[in-house]
Design a protein around this nucleic acid. Structure first.
Length: 723
RNA sequence: CCGCCUGUAGCUCAGCAGGAUAGAGCAACGGACUUCUAAUCCGUAGGUCAGAGGUUCGAGUCCUCUCAGGCGGACCA
């Protein structure tokens, strides 16, 4: 970016002048962009803090530096303002032509692979809007990192061995048949028929087209019924342990059809269920839910490279190896007595972060010998960082197999699994299987996108990496924490109305500002359902604004694009450590500080060039026209937009450093505002003065190009042809 | 009890290496569609940045305390 380069050279000039004039070597010279353009384009406030040290008036320091410095040629003039700000004014035409000339500014970064883990939805029911926050934040991070030139690998961890999956299976096998029938929306029938009917809805090999009648939606209905029954009927809860046990024993390669036959036989004979058949059912439930989740995320253009499965981590002994390493390092110990008797614990007492805790020990292996989630997570994190070697020094690794291929054209944004290869890979427990040309794990930096409530276990994982002798890797393990998505009382009422059910919340609970979502109790907004509502509302808005009577071209695509834009911007705009109180009214707003506002500005820019082509035979500014802009007078308002366009890299860098995409959102919003304002004040097509027209074309060409990058590439917000 | 987060306009939120006059959107009010599509623009009004101290040339931003709310401190994840 020319602006980056000017900044760097100006800072160097400034530092040199400081040394020459005042014999002072500053640690770092920071040039910021002043709040108002009459104060210049870049500013150095550094004279103020230096005043005391150099025993001179700040203005005097600034003046000395201003005169002495060998400013870059792009600097037109410098001014001293206020108490001692040194303000630089740039040659506007030079910066404009500089940016226009620039093609791609990838700037490859060879610092090693970055792994981003996000989404991580339990494969036991449909995704809800809370999961969307995770996926959208993770996806934007991935896009920003890739834009900055990093090699990025995206992992979506599948917890396929958890009790939640078993709970759904308990529902299929033991809920009253009338409840199953109701969930399926059929007349009551025998259990085996109901199960077969349910499994018919399980998705096959491909990513299905997302709808709200998928297998994950069926599970969404069943799961809360099961957990509710656990509480009211203690004997029902016994089924949970029974099924979990069967799932853990594995299905040994049993086919689903065979499993269903076995289940049918058991139902007819009144026998107990075959363990392998039940395990097969569970694995199908998990896998089918994963495909449904992929379909949901694909609607938003979210893609992944690898699906690590918890079952493979267990089967391949990742934990066993991590356990050995922890033992060798003396990081864990077996408790001989006390309340943790029989458990393997990791002491956190040595770490200042945990020093004030009542009990600074974290249990990694329970007294019954099973590993806690945190334990498994330590093993997984070590693998992600390339720090899980086998005794012979080779890397402890997974087997890999293609999981699914992306082929649907429907989503608003392109979906590219596997960094463009369109093949999404999953881990498997057979080490003999590999994916030629692809290797996974061993990241130099790892981001774990997980909600803020997981801060404690995340710190424990990080600490484990540290005590194993990898302090640098621990520092490179970043918990990207974000606050929860909750529902406003109005949203809860609307869901109750739509589903014709009541969550049984007290008046007191409903009087709060927001209500927590609860998967267990089934309080929440399904992602697909919300996307459907949003898309329908966007479609209505498109139709409403269209000329009366005329048919709207390509309405479904436009509606999809606007819905995705609205949602993704909503998620990006709010800072991550604030609870997002989800309100339908606000989420469905398409005017003001919203995604569609940004999309509209990009569409408007496109439209200028469409019209220009028809009316004057001109288009976007061509490369050979750039030179003719030299010496052009660029007014303050146009200049403001040019300068904003030039700041992209600075803003992305800041957003990534702080993991705060509200900065990026605000940047884009400001640009769109500037553009909309210029749109009225600086018409292009009707302008008769050729030179003026060319300048406006130049600025809008820049904006048009910039918005495509900011919206489509970085925020994942599609720019439709028309609104 | 300890730790982390939050408190900014009536409402929802920006303001992230301390900087120049605290910004948007919604809601309210007044204007602009024969236009490059008004999902827009222009304008008016709205603020002791929870409170009190402190550091600093300068504090919404850093430090301390207080108040209010949220989340953690599980052999749950």
């Amino acid at each position: 970016m020319p602006l980056e380069s000017i900044r760097k050279r100006a800072a160097e000039a400034l530092a040199a002048a400081l040394e020459a004039e005042f014999d002072h070597r500053p640690e770092e010279v920071v040039l910021e962009v002043p709040p108002r353009r009459e104060l210049g384009d870049l500013a150095w406030p550094g004279a103020l803090p230096l005043a005391r040290e150099l025993k001179r008036a700040p203005r005097q320091i600034a003046e000395g530096v201003a005169e002495k410095a060998a400013w870059p040629e792009e600097v037109e003039r410098v001014e001293i303002a206020g108490p001692g700000f040194l303000n630089l004014f740039l040659k506007r035409d030079v910066l404009l032509t500089g940016i226009l000339r620039e093609e791609h500014d990838g700037g490859a970064d060879a610092s090693g692979k970055t792994i981003v883990e996000h989404t991580n939805i339990n494969p036991n029911k449909a995704a809800h809007i809370g999961h969307l926050r995770n996926a959208v934040l993770g996806d934007i991070l991935v896009r920003c990192l890739r834009h900055l030139g990093h090699e990025v690998e995206v992992q979506d961890y599948i917890d396929d061995t958890g009790v939640q999956v078993a709970d759904v299976v308990v529902g299929f096998l033991f809920l009253p048949e009338s409840e199953l029938a109701e969930a399926l929306g059929v007349e009551p029938s025998r259990r085996d028929e109901l199960i077969e009917l349910a499994m018919k809805r399980a998705s096959g090999e491909e990513v299905p087209a997302a709808s709200t009648a998928d297998f994950d939606d069926l599970c969404w209905k069943i799961y809360p019924r099961v957990t509710a029954r656990y509480e009211t009927e203690p004997e029902f809860a016994a089924h949970r342990a029974e099924v979990l046990h069967m799932v853990e024993a594995g299905h040994g390669g049993l086919e689903l059809d065979t499993a269903l036959q076995l289940i049918r036989g058991a139902v007819v004979a009144g026998d107990s269920f075959s363990g392998r058949a039940v395990a097969r059912l569970a694995s199908t439930v998990a896998e089918s839910n994963v495909r449904c989740h992929l379909a949901t995320m694909a609607r938003l253009g979210v893609a992944y490279d690898l699906l690590p499965h918890e079952s493979d981590i267990l089967l391949l002994g990742f934990w066993r190896r991590a356990f050995e390493l922890l033992q060798d390092a003396g990081a864990i110990r077996l408790e001989e007595d006390g309340k943790n008797k029989g458990c393997w614990v990791m002491s956190l007492a040595a770490s200042p972060e945990f020093a004030d805790m009542d009990d600074p020990d974290k249990i990694l292996v329970r007294s019954n010998g099973t590993v806690t989630y945190t334990g498994k997570d330590i093993a997984y994190q070590l693998w992600k960082l390339g720090l899980l070697p086998d005794p012979d020094g080779s890397r402890h690794d997974f087997g890999y197999r293609a999981f699914t291929r992306w082929s649907q054209p429907a989503p608003a944004l392109p979906v590219r699994y596997g960094k463009g290869s369109e093949v999404l890979v999953r881990t498997i427990s057979d080490l003999a299987e590999t994916m030629p040309g692809r290797s996974f794990g061993s990241g130099r930096k790892v981001y774990n996108v997980i909600d803020v409530r997981q801060s404690y276990p995340q710190k424990v994982v990080k600490e484990a990496v540290r005590v194993l002798g990898h302090p640098e890797a621990a520092d490179n393990s970043v918990h990207f924490a974000y606050e929860m998505v909750a529902l406003t009382p109005a949203a809860v009422r609307l869901i109750e109305e739509r589903t014709g059910s009541s969550f049984g919340l007290s008046e007191e609970a409903m009087a709060k500002a927001y209500i927590d979502m609860s998967g267990r109790r089934g309080i929440g907004v399904k992602a697909d359902e919300f996307l459907d509502i949003l898309t329908a509302a966007a479609g209505d808005a498109v139709a409403e604004r269209a000329d009366e009577g005329s048919a709207v071209d390509d309405l479904p695509n436009r509606a999809r694009a606007i819905a995705v834009g609205a949602l993704r911007y909503l998620m990006a705009r709010q800072s991550r450590n604030r609870v997002l109180a989800f309100d339908f009214k606000e989420a469905l707003a398409f005017e003001g500080d919203t995604g569609p506002y940004l999309q509209y500005s990009a569409v408007r820019a496109q439209k200028i060039f469409d019209k220009l082509k028809v009316k004057r035979g001109e288009g976007r500014l061509a490369p050979e026209e750039i030179d003719s802009l030299a010496g052009a007078e660029i007014g303050d308002d146009l200049w403001e937009l040019v300068l904003q366009c030039a700041r992209r890299r600075e803003v992305i860098g800041q957003a990534v450093d702080n993991l705060e995409f509200s900065l990026l959102a605000q940047h884009v919003h400001e640009m769109a505002q500037l553009f909309h304002s210029l749109y009225h004040a600086h018409p292009v097509v009707p302008e008769e003065d050729a030179e003026l027209r060319r300048l406006r074309r130049a600025v809008f060409t820049l904006f048009d190009r910039e918005m495509k990058v900011l919206l489509e590439e970085l925020l994942g917000i599609p720019v439709p042809e028309e609104m």
